[in-house]
Design a protein around this nucleic acid. Structure first.
Lengths: 188, 188
DNA sequence: TTGCGATAGTTAGAAGCTATAACGCTTCTG
DNA sequence: CAGAAGCGTTATAGCTTCTAACTATCGCAA
């Protein structure tokens, strides 16, 4: 990799960092290439050398988010975590930056279609879940996923405010309840 | 109510109708007051007579969505539906217009804070759930909510594509499994 | 019925966004 | 060391929200 490409990668990383900061404070819909450029001390259109358009930047962020989550889940599982521990690790990863979780599992960006390599990375998350789920893996893995996401997305969206709910205990209870699940007819 | 106010209400309704159409096809972030005005045959700023800004229009849409969902849930419960029936009714309501469900339970608009009357209507949804839940109501109602939302939001976001999953069966199974739930320590 | 005041709509314009085009300047590379 | 590739600039088009100022109209009250 020549110095040209090294610099290019460096700038792309810096752009993504500013993008995450913007998303964290104002959400993905407020992400502005213009504002990022100004923060980096250069003028608007310069960023188009690094990202063809706004969607391509968001795609890069989504890919990074999936990879980070996949790594976190893999590390937890390989570190000896059971299903409850895996759920806890995922929840803590989401709480670090709620918008990062919501970017990949929240309301889809309209008109946006994830490229194939993105879905490949997201499958790595599911792969860890399926490994940890126990038999029947697909069934229990699916239930794990929907239960964790159900509590987590409502928590992150603030729908538990003023309800005296402990989301951590709720997740734990839901995943522990999976122990009694044996099989089901959820396949289509 | 004089003719002035009657007309005003009529125009507001028409604006909201066009807004829903736009949201259904392109999502809430693509909602454009300008485009709505053009569709109605008048020029941009005219709409500001009826909605102070974009947020106020969205607030009106959210309130209508909550009211529609509350009415649907109430009708199902009063019609003799059990918990599974209630879950089915909610899911079918969401499938009619996914963006309507995602508007109220999806990723929150950053910086947007729902006015008090909006949350009052959303409480009506919870009220029906709590009535239908059975004892302990808060505990079982909460689990009902998170489980239904977990499956539904992932389904609406398209995360089940290509996975041969039957979301309807999944919801049914999850809610039927609530029968074994007795109590829990999810309170904070 | 007539006249006035409130209201609806208009155009103009500011400030912001994405994105493209055309132009220098720099920097790596053959 | 020359040239090509790449970076950053300004200008511009077209879109958005939203404010300001102006006109016309409509309803109500005397």
């Amino acid at each position: 990799m020549g110095p040209r490409e090294r610099y290019r990668e460096q700038v792309r990383d810096e752009v993504k960092q500013h993008a995450w900061e913007q998303i964290a404070t104002a959400g993905v819909s407020a992400l502005s290439l213009n504002a990022i450029a100004k923060q980096m001390g250069m003028s608007g259109p310069a960023l188009y050398r690094y990202f063809a358009n706004r969607d391509e930047l968001i795609t890069a962020l989504i890919r990074d988010a999936y990879r980070s989550l996949a790594d976190t889940a893999r590390a937890a599982y390989d570190g000896g975590a059971d299903l409850v521990g895996l759920a806890r690790a995922i929840r803590e990863w989401a709480l670090v930056d709620p918008h990062r979780y919501l970017l990949i599992y929240g309301t889809p960006v309209p008109g946006y279609h994830a490229p194939a390599d993105t879905t490949a990375i997201s499958d790595q998350v599911m792969a860890v879940i399926l490994e940890a789920a126990g038999e029947p893996a697909v069934h229990r893995g699916l239930l794990f996923w929907t239960r964790v996401h159900g509590v987590l997305s409502l928590e992150l969206a603030g729908h538990f405010h003023g309800m005296s709910v402990d989301p951590a205990a709720l997740v734990t209870e839901e995943i522990e309840a999976l122990a009694v699940v044996r099989a089901g007819s959820h396949r289509s």
